[in-house]
């Protein structure tokens, strides 16, 4: 039994070590953000600043209209995420109820489209948005939600809906013949863990989307947080405490939401939901 115990301990140590490796960059980022501005850069491994300060976070406000950028990011996310959920779950639901051959075709099609790199679409989308007068509007940032953001989310929902036992669907069909109602009252509530996962992933996507505003936005009052980081980097390339503070600030909302919802993910990967 001692042998087994020590093995478990080994695994725990390994797990702790791995976790530490993954968290270390973020930890360093946080510490540097607390470093007082203007003083020489820390040159020893004793990275804990002598006089930790939140001053850097205030400085962001003085340099760029970060409040406006935050609001823009919030606005884009609050529209794009529900829209993504709606469209990707509808699509996943529909595919899951097609005849098997069509199902297979749709899955493969989605997989194939997943493989088209975004770069291939950069400037043709630019030309398209120009034609539709979407350039320099929030639409340019939100519009991917119209296709469920990425086929990946559709496939996630497809997987979840397929796992719901057919007996449940059959019972539901006795009550109503409306596919929409089955989706709204039966299927979607059962796929909540997946919905949560998709919400979180799409939050990561829209909150961190650097390319769309870079390529399609021009007006400062429309900028989102990722652009704020680029702006500050160009204004103060060596002001690391300021840059790290901005990095921490922009990560704040997704990280908080992730940690709050984290307990729910424990169920996400169980074999039977």
């Amino acid at each position: 039994m001692r042998h087994l115990l020590s093995k478990e301990r080994w695994i725990l140590i390994l797990r702790l070590g791995t976790t530490a490796v993954f968290l270390l960059p973020l930890f360093w980022m946080l510490l540097t953000a607390l470093h007082p501005p203007g003083t020489p850069l820390p040159q020893s491994l004793n990275l804990w600043p002598n006089t930790p300060t939140l001053n850097n976070f205030i400085r962001i406000w003085q340099i760029i209209p970060i409040g406006r950028f935050t609001l823009n990011s919030l606005l884009v996310s609050t529209i794009a995420i529900p829209l993504t959920l709606l469209i990707s779950s509808w699509a996943g639901f529909s595919i899951a109820h097609l005849p098997p051959t069509s199902q297979r075709r749709w899955v493969l099609l989605s997989l194939a489209l997943l493989m088209i790199p975004g770069i291939a679409l950069w400037f043709t989308r630019f030309l398209l948005y120009r034609q539709l007068h979407w350039l320099n509007t929030y639409w340019a940032l939100i519009v991917p939600a119209w296709m469920g953001t990425t086929p990946f989310y559709v496939l996630m929902f497809y997987r979840a809906f397929r796992r719901i036992p057919s007996a449940i669907y059959d019972a539901a069909r006795l009550e109503t013949s409306h596919a929409f109602q089955i989706w709204a009252y039966i299927a979607f509530p059962l796929a909540r863990p997946t919905a949560l996962g998709v919400s979180l992933l799409s939050l990561t996507f829209y909150w961190g989307d650097f390319l769309s505003p870079l390529l399609y936005l021009r007006t400062e009052s429309l900028y989102t947080l990722p652009i704020a980081i680029q702006l500050l980097q160009q204004m103060a390339p060596s002001d690391w405490p300021l840059l790290m503070a901005t990095a921490v600030y922009t990560s704040l909302i997704p990280v908080t939401l992730f940690l709050l919802t984290q307990p729910h993910f424990a169920h996400l990967n169980r074999r039977n939901p």
Binding site: F126, R130, L215, R218, T219, E220, Q234, M235
Partner: peptide, 24 residues
């Protein structure tokens, strides 16, 4: 007057070129 501010002169031409291409 609506001011658009680009921090880096190196980026400036890219931004400007794209603006002209965008028709705005």
């Amino acid at each position: 007057i609506e001011v658009t501010h680009i921090p880096s002169p190196r980026d400036y031409r890219t931004r400007l070129a794209t603006e002209f291409a965008a028709g705005t």
